[in-house]
Amino acid sequence: MADVKQQVRDYIIENFLFGDTSTQFSDEDSFMEKGILDSTGILEVITFLEESYGIKIEDDELVPENLDSINNIASFISRKKN
C-alpha cells in the first residue's frame, strides 16, 4: 500500500509538477480541486496505472472516488488486485 502511494506521488510530481516539490499536497487532496491535473491528465494517470499495476480500468470505474487523490487510487488499486 505504502509503496503504491509513494509510486503514484512520484509519478504525479515528475509528470504534472515537472519535478517541482514546492507544491504541497496530501494523500487526501483532490488532484482536480488542487489544480494538479486536468482531464487529459487523468487519462495519462489511467494509462500509468494500467501499465504499472497490470490492471484494466472499466469506463464505469472512471470516477473521482477511485482516482482523484493518492488515497483513492491506492484503495482502488488494492481492491482491483484482490
Binding site: S30, M32, E33, S39, T40, I42
Partner: peptide, 19 residues
C-alpha cells in the same frame, strides 16, 4: 469544446470547478 474528447470524465471537471 473541453468536454468533447472526455465525455465520460465529466465528474473530474466538476472537481476542477468545485474549488
Amino acid at each position: 469544446y473541453i468536454l468533447k474528447d472526455a465525455r465520460h470524465l465529466n465528474t473530474f471537471w466538476q472537481g476542477f470547478f468545485k474549488k
